[in-house]
Design a protein around this nucleic acid. Structure first.
Lengths: 127, 127
DNA sequence: TTGACATGCAACCATAAGGTTTCCTATAAT
DNA sequence: ATTATAGGAAACCTTATGGTTGCATGTCAA
């Protein structure tokens, strides 16, 4: 592994299924490393490395309590993902309104955007 | 590389910056491989492999036109990402609302709000 | 036809990524 | 003091991943 430099990419961080599961675990509560690693078939060290990657991406926050280190979810970096996604959202909404019923629990009146003439701009960089 | 098995993971597919840029290129229009690879500092073959990965993830669709193969965006698989994100959205919305309360410091009437005891369920699997 | 263009495939390469084991350092607990 | 617990760091291994070059194939243009 080798989480070399800080500020890892969020897309990269959530690419791994194990890390996504970790995020899920930490969603509800704060947890120490041992408790977390108990949910995985790999060594504690391996989980620890995943935690470092998540921390580098800013997705979890660590807090030392006694001899243990508790981790908690820090969802803010996911905003970048959300913005990226929002850019493409218009494309599929445009094409398949039939699939709309699959997108359950969607807020009504999200955004009334362009009908068709969609120009390609770098997603994630909005004025 | 070696795009071994079909049905690659979407999270994995969008983890690579090059592939995200490819998606961005294909957002507006359909493009042949050569035109796509023209936007990258790597060989055409390399881009072609990225296209295969995207295709395996269902994010692009190919269509043969004469001697060229045109690719177009197929955003539907991003729905999975959206659902995954939606699960975590509540967490940061929760926090932001707390922040909002702190900043505004308006009223003492913040009783019936966030119990903060959000239970962890597997995201992406909704009843 | 003959040749130029557009792509795919195979073989290969270097490095990153996920994992393991072994040790080392703090902090409790007895 | 001594021992047990929680976690991290170093060294190492294996496989994925991103990339290259060279060759083969299909298609359009002359």
């Amino acid at each position: 592994m080798g989480a070399a430099e800080p500020n890892q990419d969020v897309f990269q961080a959530i690419a791994d299924p194990t890390r996504r599961k970790v995020l899920n675990l930490l969603a509800g509560q704060e947890m120490p490393v041992n408790a977390i690693s108990g949910h995985f078939p790999m060594s504690r060290t391996a989980v620890s490395k995943h935690l470092r990657i998540l921390a580098d991406a800013g997705l979890v926050q660590e807090r030392k309590v006694g001899r243990e280190k508790r981790y908690r979810l820090q969802p803010e970096p996911l905003l970048e993902l959300k913005r990226w996604l929002a850019y493409y959202e218009r494309f599929w909404e445009n094409r398949l309104s039939v699939l709309k019923h699959l997108v359950e629990a969607e807020e009504p009146g999200e955004s009334g955007e362009e009908p068709s003439g969609l120009k390609a701009v770098e997603p994630g960089s909005r004025p």
